[in-house]
Amino acid sequence: MPGEPWVLRDEWSVAAASNGTTQNKASMAYFAHLSDVHIIDEESPARAIHSPIAAESAWRPYDAYSTHMLDAAMRTINEFAEVHPHDFVLFSGDVTDTHLFIELRWFIDVVEGNPIDPDTGDDDNPMATGVVDPHDPYTPVGLSPQIPWYVCLGNHDAWVLGSLGASVVASPTCSSATPLVSHAVVPTCFAELPCPGGYCYPETPERCHVPMDDGYYTSSSIPPDPDRRYIDLEEFKTMVMQATVQGPSGHGFTMENLNDGTNYFSVD
Rank of each mutant, 00 (worst) to 15 (best):
S66V: 05
E112D: 10
M212H: 15
H50L: 00
V245S: 14
S35E: 06
V132I: 13
A73R: 14
I116V: 11
L193K: 14
A243I: 02
R75K: 05
D136R: 05
D119N: 11
C174Y: 10
F88C: 09
A29N: 15
L258S: 11
C200H: 01
E203H: 10
Y217S: 00
P2M: 14
D214R: 06
E206S: 14
M255I: 05
S176K: 01
M255V: 15
D97P: 01
D10G: 14
G162F: 08
G197E: 03
V267F: 04
V37C: 15
L8I: 09
S51R: 10
S92W: 04
V14S: 11
W106E: 06
N78W: 12
A166W: 07
Y62F: 15
R229W: 11
V14G: 02
P196V: 00
R105C: 03
N155V: 15
V185C: 00
E235I: 14
E4I: 11
H251K: 13
Q23I: 09
S175E: 13
S35R: 11
S144N: 09
F31V: 00
P226Q: 04
T244P: 01
E43S: 13
H86S: 12
P126Y: 12
V267S: 03
V141I: 13
T173C: 08
P118I: 05
V141Y: 07
E11P: 08
A16K: 12
Y201R: 02
W106R: 11
S182W: 00
L193R: 15
V160S: 06
R228Y: 09
F236K: 02
L258W: 01
G250K: 15
H86A: 10
S175H: 13
M127G: 13
P140L: 08
W59Q: 03
P45C: 05
A184C: 07
Y230D: 02
T120L: 04
G247D: 05
R60L: 12
S27V: 13
D117W: 07
P61C: 08
S219I: 06
T204A: 10
E43D: 09
E79R: 15
S13A: 13
C152S: 14
L153E: 10
D227E: 10
L8S: 13
A177V: 04
E235L: 15
G20I: 07
T254V: 08
R229S: 14
P148R: 06
R60Y: 02
H99K: 14
Y199P: 00
S163T: 14
M241F: 06
M1C: 04
L233W: 09
